[in-house]
Amino acid sequence: MSEEPQENIAGDDAVAAAFEPGTAGTRAEAVVDRLGELYWQKTYGGTDAFECLVRTILSQNTSDVASQPAHDALMERYGDGDLVDALADAEQSELAETISSAGLYNRKSEVIIDAAERIRGTYGGAAAFDEFVREDDPETVREALLDIHGVGPKTADCVLLFAGGREGVFPVDTHVHRIARRTGLAPADADHEAVRARLEADVPATKCGFGHTAMIQFGREYCSARNPACLDGPEACPLYDRCDRVGVDEVGESVVDPAEAAD
């Protein structure tokens, strides 16, 4: 097993989750256990809720390489006091310039300012919003987050996981969506919400956090959209024996989205 890093995907100190592979109760749990042996178990908690929301908005449709400098620049300019107040009062053009490295910066700046205004009006500020995310009923929190303009299911679930420290939350990004369907853990034509529902039903709550982060790492290193490692043979992929390879033609060395293979 590789050395466990000191930071989670949200970039802050995380709460260590117990990793006990044992005998998996479902195929999905067996896959997550294998990924847990490959990667790390520090998964969630320890992140300010509004900063986590902002960070996740910045990461939409872009890479960590692009979104991290945008987050750092935003925090340098606006992070001295209450971040909600600072961003609710921010000039949109100035914020857009600040986060320009993240891409789609005009839209993202509007979404961040709208979110800050909504949170200040509803909760009063960053501290109260943080308490709400950590302490209220998870479904209530999720519904409130989804009601914010520009916040989708993946963003809401990341806030619940990384800021709220909630067990049983398995955010679905493009990597998780692809891998769950390619391996056969979810139907080939399942949308993001259907994949989330299946994984949260089949993976124990305590393993959902590191299952999410480890699956992202696996997607980056082994199971890319166009060139998965299995094309180089069984020995090239550590999940080969647990994967249906839906949409992957190893003989023809071609790959399509699992939904296309199911048609």
Rank of each mutant, 00 (worst) to 15 (best):
Ser2Ile: 10
Ser2Gln: 15
Pro5Asn: 05
Gln6Cys: 11
Gln6Met: 11
Ile9Arg: 06
Asp13Cys: 09
Asp13Val: 05
Ala14Cys: 14
Ala18Trp: 08
Phe19Lys: 03
Phe19Ser: 08
Gly22Val: 05
Thr23His: 13
Arg27Met: 11
Arg27Phe: 11
Arg27Pro: 15
Val32Lys: 02
Val32Ile: 10
Leu35Glu: 07
Leu35Val: 07
Gly36Ser: 10
Glu37His: 11
Leu38Glu: 08
Leu38Ala: 09
Trp40Glu: 15
Asp48Glu: 15
Leu53Arg: 03
Arg55Lys: 10
Gln60Val: 15
Asp64Trp: 08
Asp72Pro: 09
Ala73Met: 08
Ala73Arg: 03
Glu76Ser: 05
Tyr78Thr: 02
Tyr78Trp: 05
Val84Leu: 00
Asp85Gly: 11
Ala86Leu: 11
Ala86Gln: 12
Ala86Tyr: 04
Leu87Asp: 13
Leu87Cys: 11
Gln92Leu: 04
Ser93Gln: 12
Ala96Asp: 12
Ile99Arg: 08
Gly103Ala: 12
Tyr105Asp: 13
Lys108Cys: 14
Lys108Gln: 13
Val111Met: 14
Val111Gly: 09
Ile113Cys: 13
Ala116Val: 03
Ile119Met: 13
Arg120Ser: 11
Gly124Phe: 05
Gly125Glu: 09
Glu131Gly: 15
Glu131Asn: 15
Phe132Asn: 12
Arg134Glu: 15
Arg134Phe: 14
Pro138Asp: 12
Glu139Phe: 03
Glu143Pro: 03
Gly152Ala: 06
Thr155Gly: 06
Ala156Arg: 01
Asp157Gln: 12
Val159Phe: 00
Leu160Met: 09
Gly164Gln: 09
Arg166Gln: 09
Gly168Met: 02
Val169Lys: 07
Val172Thr: 04
Asp173Pro: 14
His175Asn: 01
His175Gln: 00
His175Ala: 04
Ala180Glu: 01
Ala180Asn: 05
Thr183His: 02
Ala186Arg: 00
Ala186Leu: 02
Val195Thr: 04
Cys208Arg: 11
His212Phe: 03
Met215Lys: 00
Phe218Asp: 05
Gly219Leu: 07
Tyr222His: 10
Cys223Ile: 06
Ala225Tyr: 08
Arg226Gly: 13
Arg226Ile: 00
Arg226Phe: 01
Arg226Glu: 13
Asp232Met: 09
Gly233Ser: 04
Gly233Ala: 07
Leu239Glu: 02
Asp244Ser: 12
Asp244Phe: 00
Arg245His: 15
Gly247Cys: 10
Gly247Ser: 05
Glu250Ile: 13
Asp257Gln: 12
Ala259Trp: 03
Ala262Thr: 01
Ala262Trp: 00
